[in-house]
Design a protein around this nucleic acid. Sequence first.
DNA 1: GTTTTAAATGCAACGAGGTTGCAAATGTAA
DNA 2: TTACATTTGCAACCTCGTTGCATTTAAAAC
Lengths: 136, 136
Amino acid sequence: MMEPSQILHEHQLKRTSCREGIIVTIMDAGMALSENEIREKLEGNYDRTTFYRAFKTLHDHQIIHKIVVDNQIIKYALDNSVTKKNSHAHFYCQDCNTVQCMETVPVSKPQLPDGFTSSETEVIIKGRCNHCQNPE
Amino acid sequence: MMEPSQILHEHQLKRTSCREGIIVTIMDAGMALSENEIREKLEGNYDRTTFYRAFKTLHDHQIIHKIVVDNQIIKYALDNSVTKKNSHAHFYCQDCNTVQCMETVPVSKPQLPDGFTSSETEVIIKGRCNHCQNPE
DNA sequence: GTTTTAAATGCAACGAGGTTGCAAATGTAA
DNA sequence: TTACATTTGCAACCTCGTTGCATTTAAAAC
């Protein structure tokens, strides 16, 4: 995986601690995180505005990918262009509230009726993950 | 398709003009609508609160289904239990900003790694619909 | 290392979107 | 028609995200 500073440099973005912190936090987590989860894990305290702007910048440059499970549940992961992964489904666990990439569930271009063209397909699978399987 | 009043009765919900109006509006439109689109089409003017509560009630009772394209784009359609349709993908047109059901694109239960179980899968296809195909 | 400059930050203020409590109005069953 | 639980509309409130602006900072030029 690329270094955060290198990612920012390639997109001609300044290397700021907020941006780097967001990228590092997502990398370390290994799963998609919500904005609040990222803020909690970041040491430094940033203004809400700074956070939103950093998110927007990273998202606009397709460094992070927004996964909208529900309008209340929005998670961020590194974009496929950074991770070099293929297009895949995302799994949302309704028990532990986590989102993870399902690389074994590829997403292919759908067969659409005449006249329709697609640029992107999002697949969200909701259920219970392997860690939450045997509830008491 | 069932009558709105019958739908409400079956769910033991009172038949109010706001609830009936929402259901009728979605039925007539033939495609998923946003809250604002529904409000505009409804004749009577309801308080914001009433609207939100009616939505929540209908959604809780699985009469309407929420399609979250993005956190900014949320549309509502009648649930499959009302329309008797099978599970299918939804198509979002990035040009005309509409959402329609893709009944020719069925959604089947995905093959997941050991230990994972799914209860629901959402497929959102983003692209350009048949009416927006030849832009000038 | 110093200077310079465009970009990013933090703060205050604002607006949209959604929720809660409560009194008044309404649907429905007796 | 009556009675009662539910729904409605209003006011107040909170959270979330944005904007303008002065200050600070990253990084390129010297």
